[in-house]
């Protein structure tokens, strides 16, 4: 039989379309609500209608100035979030990839125990490690200037976040490296390449997508991390975007207009959402196939 695409009967097509349009409505409703609110031209605390009667970008301008009552600018908040997320993700990938490679390729004494160690700590949610990290990092004080407390700094939050990000990065990268065929490496070894050369010139280039995805997932976690930063940081100049977003809603919001809150939510999401869209297939594949093996 020649290839013919089955034609869907019109009645069925319409029923399916109605169902999908309803699902689309439920998916889009919160997004449209928040986008609409962020464009509200009136500087009022609470809009009364679903979509604003006139639109402008003034809520964004307001947020780009000083989003919360704390004396800290949007740029500062964004820089803190960026440094934290980028630093944590970079360290986790850089330190994790060599261990992931060894786990994926070699049998050696203690391998099972070390892997078990990694899997075990992976199972501990970040929030269940706050108490010891808080206490330990709090005990490190360096008497420079007005005194530096490691806990009350972006460095401390960063270290606490690497504590969870590194095991994840080892595990995620190992899952991906397991899927790379060994033939290339074996051929290179026969040709006289050293293990270092194999790693640098074969493995690293081949695992570029996995490195990118692992970096991005680490970045995403850091970018929206809340509990650790909220617990550790007390100086407004160290605050992050995620903390500011929570400051703009809920019990700390005061009379922050919802339009400003909405603009903040969008500015926080947009950069990571766009990157996620591009990497989506790699991320889903890695999490479901490589990660659990």
């Amino acid at each position: 039989m020649p290839e013919t695409t089955k034609k869907l009967p019109l009645g069925q097509q319409l029923i399916y379309q109605a169902m999908l349009l309803f699902i689309t409505f439920t998916v889009m409703f919160p997004i449209l609500w928040i986008v609409g609110m962020s464009l509200d031209a009136r500087d009022i605390a609470r809009p009364k209608e679903l979509f604003p009667p006139e639109i402008s970008l003034q809520a964004y301008l307001r947020v780009l100035g000083q989003p919360t009552a704390n004396p800290v600018t949007f740029i500062q908040l964004a820089m803190n979030s960026l440094l934290l997320a980028g630093g944590v993700a970079f360290c986790a990938v850089l330190i994790g990839v060599s261990a992931a490679y060894v786990f994926s390729r070699f049998k050696f004494y203690g391998r099972e125990y070390l892997m078990l160690g990694v899997i075990t700590v992976l199972m501990v949610p970040a929030i269940a490690t706050i108490a010891p990290l808080f206490v330990l990092l709090n005990s490190i004080n360096i008497p420079i200037g007005s005194g530096f407390n490691l806990r009350n700094s972006l460095w401390g939050v960063g270290l606490a976040m690497i504590s969870g990000a590194l095991p994840f990065s080892i595990w995620n990268l190992k899952g991906y490296l397991d899927t790379i065929p060994k033939d290339l490496e074996e051929a290179a070894i026969i040709d006289g390449a050293s293990f270092n050369q194999v790693f640098m010139y074969i493995i690293l280039p081949l695992s570029r997508p996995a490195l990118a995805v692992t970096f991005f997932l680490g970045f995403l976690t850091g970018w929206t991390e809340f509990a650790l930063s909220w617990q550790f940081l007390t100086k407004p100049e160290n605050f992050t975007l995620a903390m500011a977003l929570w400051n703009m809603t809920g019990q700390y919001s005061g009379d922050t207009p919802w339009s400003a809150f909405a603009a903040m939510a969008i500015m926080l999401s947009l950069p990571v959402a766009i990157v996620y869209l591009f990497l989506q297939q790699h991320i889903v594949g890695g999490l479901t196939v490589g990660g659990v093996k």
């Binding site: 699902i23 689309t24 998916v27 889009m28 919160p30 997004i31 609500w33 928040i34 995403l220 970018w223 929206t224 809340f226 995620a242 977003l245 929570w246 809603t249 809920g250 919802w258 809150f261 909405a262 939510a265 926080l268 999401s269 990571v272 959402a273 996620y276 869209l277 989506q280």
Partner: peptide, 18 residues
Amino acid sequence: FVLPMVIPSLVIAVVWRN
């Protein structure tokens, strides 16, 4: 339908609260 997945869950949560 991918959109709910690509928006950070922190943002999704505060928006639903709102």
